[in-house]
């Protein structure tokens, strides 16, 4: 039988949590990736005659302004989607709120570094 006093005590379930938009961002970046990955793949393997097979071909490909922008967009979107995904899996462990905040900070830092590296690579190869 349920002890009434225990049952009426404040539990972690009677307190509201902060609203979250993480799932929405995960879904939005996911849908965007569907488009960007298709462009990324089709442009590299089918539009370019025979696909990108040499260093010179890759440089040529990246120098197209549209592709250069698309690849930046792809980099940012895929990194955000990946970090949100890792975050979602880690949050499934029911960790303490302070730990969760630390996870979010770390993943933000890793994501920023990843994008920074990718941007450097894009510019280093194209120019």
């Amino acid at each position: 039988m349920i002890d009434v006093e225990t049952a009426h005590a404040e539990s972690m379930y009677t307190r509201r949590e902060r609203p979250t938009t993480a799932w929405v961002w995960q879904a939005a970046t996911g849908v965007l990736l569907l488009i960007l990955l298709t462009v990324h793949m089709i442009a590299q393997h089918f539009i370019v005659e025979g696909g990108l097979r040499t260093h010179a071909e890759v440089v040529d490909y990246l120098r197209s302004p549209v592709i250069f922008v698309v690849e930046h967009l792809f980099l940012g979107t895929v990194t955000l989607h990946a970090m949100l995904g890792i975050r979602a899996v880690l949050f499934d462990f029911g960790l303490a709120p302070a730990t969760e905040r630390r996870i979010t900070s770390w993943l933000t830092a890793i994501g920023v570094l990843t994008v920074a590296y990718g941007v450097w690579l894009l510019w280093a190869v194209a120019f």
Binding site: R16, E17, P19, W23, D92
Partner: peptide
């Protein structure tokens, strides 16, 4: 509103996979 607030959050409806 209160009931919807209780359902929101990382360990609310968004934790369902």
């Amino acid at each position: 509103e209160h009931l919807l607030d209780l359902a929101d959050g990382e360990h609310g409806v968004w934790r369902c996979h």
